[in-house]
Simulated scan of single mutants.
Amino acid sequence: MNFEDIQSAWNKESNDNIPFQLPTALKDLKGKQSPVKKIRNTMRTELIFQLIGLVIVGFFPQILHLSSSFLLAFYMTYGFMIIISLYYFIRFYFFYNRLYNYTLNSKESLFTLYYDIKINIEMYRSFNYSLIPVLVIMLSLFIVAKVPLGSLMDQSHLLTLGIIILAISTLLVYGFMEFGIKVGYGRYLKEIGAVLDELNE
């Protein structure tokens, strides 16, 4: 084999290498329809709806005609809900801004983005689960306000009522949360994961 044949074989092999395919694989993650931009749009929309939801919850006593004797307990619980929400809103705001900084021009950058999204999905889960005790207290206040005091004195009723409230709150939070993660974040995380898998082959 002469020098020209060796050089030709080398050039052919170089053209088949993955580094030359990286920009093509990463190109799918850029542009107007990129998963990162979709995640940012989802976060922005979700923040608006969560803020509206927080305001509406503040008017529940008036909407559902809660007795004035329960108003202090309700608004103390509502205050805890706002404090918990503010903490997570601030964390998500930093994550939202951090999404601007990912260049997506290397496998390392893509790995960092992928795991950052996964961590923030888990934070989103913990945020929703932290609201369960608040929901339990709020539901309990509304139920206690409507149920006669004499029937609440029976311990068996209290235990049953507590289990029902806890189950309803947990199911509501879990259902909405998992649906929100799947629709708003999960599919875009899969797109990024698919590109990572492609780059690893």
Rank of each mutant, 00 (worst) to 15 (best):
L141R: 00
M138N: 08
L135M: 10
Y102C: 01
N120D: 10
K146R: 11
S109T: 01
V144C: 00
H157S: 03
V173L: 08
F176W: 14
Y115T: 15
I84T: 08
R98I: 01
S156N: 11
E178N: 15
Y185E: 12
I84P: 01
G79E: 02
I121D: 07
I181F: 09
Y114C: 09
L152W: 09
G186F: 09
L166G: 08
E122Q: 14
L141G: 02
S169G: 11
L149T: 12
K182R: 15
S130N: 06
Y93F: 13
G175L: 12
Q155Y: 08
T160W: 11
T170L: 13
I82L: 14
G79K: 07
T160N: 12
F95P: 02
H157E: 01
I143R: 00
F94H: 13
Y124S: 11
I164S: 12
Y115G: 05
Y114V: 03
L104F: 03
Y96D: 04
Y87S: 02
R91S: 13
L149C: 01
F95R: 04
Y188S: 05
L110R: 04
D116G: 13
I84D: 06
S140V: 00
Y185P: 08
Q155P: 05
I137K: 02
I165G: 05
N128A: 15
E178P: 04
F80E: 04
T160P: 00
V147A: 03
I137S: 05
R187I: 12
D116C: 09
L131N: 11
S85C: 02
F94G: 04
L113W: 03
Q155D: 07
Y174S: 15
H157G: 04
G184L: 13
A145P: 00
Y114K: 12
T103I: 00
Y174W: 15
H157V: 06
D116L: 07
L159H: 10
S85I: 01
V134F: 01
N105W: 03
F89Y: 13
I83N: 00
F142C: 05
F179W: 15
L161H: 06
L139Q: 11
L86R: 07
L161T: 02
T170D: 05
I82G: 06
L110A: 04
T170R: 06
T170P: 02
I168A: 14
L166Q: 07
L149F: 10
T103Q: 07
R98A: 10
Y188E: 13
L104C: 02
L161G: 09
L152K: 02
V183E: 14
L152Q: 06
